[in-house]
Design a binder for these strands. Structure first.
Length: 206
DNA sequence: GCACCGATCGCCT
DNA sequence: GGCGATCGGTGCT
């Protein structure tokens, strides 16, 4: 069955509505040599725009770095952080409003050997270590700032596809967002607790 | 010009 | 569980 691409219309909804919907969706990366890497999204976070103290667009901040967040729903917002990692977001909501969903973890589906090479080719790197974090998945899929503002709804290098299933979800506070109450504790993270590929799981799970 | 620090990761204890 | 790596973005002097 041919996978169906997300459309800009599908994505022109609030971040806290889209983030849980994207669990189970598929991110497809087509490398310049034609190799196709895919992964099932198992963890996301919503970033709520100008009011959200944890967002790059807090207080209306608009700079060359975060310009893509103000674009049309369906663009990718890719940024560089900690001097060595990239993270990828799905821009959503209305054009001109800087809301987005961070993709935090994937369950690799195809192209695992290429992902392993891109992750440094270390021996003893388990499948669950390939894409279980926002920086890891960007490394595994060769996503960097060259893909900032790429159109995820097009048949291009990076594409968002509908998944076949609607998984069980856990809703929890976001990760690594610092001390910005009340936003730090707002339950704007979603993940599939049955996946072994989530970045961080809560203590109460067994 | 310059200081601070981050939507992280991997290695060490 | 702790911490160092590493550097671009941002905002202040």
């Amino acid at each position: 069955m041919k996978p169906r691409r997300y459309t800009s219309r599908d994505l022109a909804i609030p971040a806290e509505v889209l983030a849980p919907k994207l669990i189970g969706a598929v991110l497809r990366r087509t490398l310049p040599d034609g190799m196709v890497l895919t992964g099932r999204i198992v963890e996301t976070e919503a970033y709520m725009g100008a009011d959200d103290r944890c967002s790059h667009a807090y207080n209306g901040r608009r700079t060359p770095r975060n310009e893509a967040m103000y674009g049309r729903a369906g663009l990718a917002y890719v940024y560089f952080t900690y001097g060595m990692h990239h993270c990828v977001n799905v821009v959503c909501g209305e054009e001109g409003v800087a809301v987005a969903v961070l993709i935090r973890a994937l369950e690799p589906l195809t192209g695992l050997e290429a992902m392993r090479r891109l992750r440094g080719g270390r021996k003893n790197l388990r499948d669950r270590d390939l894409c279980s974090g926002p920086g890891k998945l960007c490394q595994a899929l060769a996503i960097d700032r060259a893909l900032n503002a790429a159109d995820l709804t097009a048949d291009g290098p990076l594409t968002l596809l509908h998944g076949p299933s609607t998984p069980v979800l856990v809703n929890a506070p976001r990760i690594g967002v610092g001390d910005h109450e009340p936003w730090s504790f707002a339950p704007l993270r979603w993940y599939d607790p049955r996946s072994g590929h989530v970045s961080v799981r809560s203590k109460s799970e067994h």
